[in-house]
Design a protein around this nucleic acid. Sequence first.
DNA 1: GTCTATAAGATGATAGAC
DNA 2: GTCTATCATCTTATAGAC
Lengths: 192, 192
Amino acid sequence: MSAKDGNTLDRILDTAESLMQTRGYNAFSFRDLAKIIEIKPASVHYYFQNKGDLGKALVMRYSKRFETARDCLDRLNVTSAEKLDRYVDLLSDGFQLKGRMCLCGVLAAEASTLPSDVVEEVRTFFVANETWLATLLESGRQSGDLRFEGAAIEAAQSLFAALEGALMSAWTFSSNARLNAAGKWLVASLKT
Amino acid sequence: MSAKDGNTLDRILDTAESLMQTRGYNAFSFRDLAKIIEIKPASVHYYFQNKGDLGKALVMRYSKRFETARDCLDRLNVTSAEKLDRYVDLLSDGFQLKGRMCLCGVLAAEASTLPSDVVEEVRTFFVANETWLATLLESGRQSGDLRFEGAAIEAAQSLFAALEGALMSAWTFSSNARLNAAGKWLVASLKT
DNA sequence: GTCTATAAGATGATAGAC
DNA sequence: GTCTATCATCTTATAGAC
C-alpha cells in the first residue's frame, strides 16, 4: 500500500464500483479511477490486466454481497410478505443511501457493448435473484400471504425486472419518492 | 444527398437511432455512424454541431413517434384493457421486431453522463408516457375493466418503469420470451 | 453539402526502471 | 507494487478547400 489507508486492491474495487454504478461501464476509465485513489493508471493494470477483468471482478463481488444479504433474509423469522418488503429495501438501499444505480442494472443496459464474460456475470446476478424470489413467492403463495397467477419463476423474473426498472426510473429523475412508490405498488399487488 | 438513396439527414437520424438503441450514448461515435452511411465524420457535424445535439434530436423524434402511436391507440374503439395490451405491444415492438432496446431506456441508465438537455428530453418521454397511461388506467378503473389501488399517476409511473425494466431484462438475455412473459404478467395484475 | 486536414485530449494498454 | 514513458487508436470536434 502506498496512498491513503487500507490496501490498494480494496480501494480500487470500492472506487471502481462507485464509478461503474454512477457512470456505467463505457463512461468510466482507468484514468478516472486512478486519479481518485491517487495512483497511476498503470498501477491499476497490475491488479487487473484489462478493463473487462475489473468489470467481471466487480460484478462477482457485488453478486456475492447480495447472496449474503439474501441468506440473511432467509434466516429471518417473518412472513414471506415481510421478507419481500425487506428484499425491496435491499435492492433500493444503494440508491436511497448512496445515490447509486444497481451495478447490474446499469450494465444490463450496456449489455451489447460489454466483454462477454462481464455480461455473463450480469446474467448470473439476474438469475440468482430471480431464483431466490421464485422460491420466496411460491412459499408465500403456499402459506397464503402472497398471491399471484402462474409459474413462480415467471412472476419472479417479471418482478425483478420491474424492480430494476423502478430503480432506473428513480435514477433518471433522481427521485427517492419514485422508487418508494414503485416498490410499494409492485409488492402491493402480490399481497393478499 | 451523395451516397445511397434518400436524404442524408434522414439516413443520419435512422442510423444514429439504431446505434444509440443498441449501444447507448457513450459507446457510439460520429465515426461509427459516418462509416455505416459512407460519409465522413465531418459531414455529420454539418447537420449536428455536436453529439449532444444529435442525441437530443433523436430523442425528440422518438418521442414524437410514440406520441403519434398513442394518439392512434386513443382513437381505437376498444376497452381500456385492450388498449393497455396494445400499448405494451407498442413498447415491445422495437425489441421484438428489430432487436433494439427502447432508446429512452438505454439513455435512462446513462443519465448521469448525458448532456443535460438530452436527459431532459428523456424525462419528457417518461412523463408523456406516464401521463397517457395514468389517463388510460383511470378510465379503465371507471369503466370497470381495470383494477388497481391508489392514485392513477403512481400506478402509471410504476407500470411504465416496470415495462422499461422488462425491456432491459429481455435485452440482457436477448429473449423475446422474457419480454412477453413480463408484459403479460404486469398487465394481468391490472385486469379485473 | 461534403470533403481533407488537423488538433487536443482521452483511452486501453505495455515495457521496463525503481 | 508502483512508477515513468510510451503506444496506437479513438474521440469530439474545427477550419477551410472544393
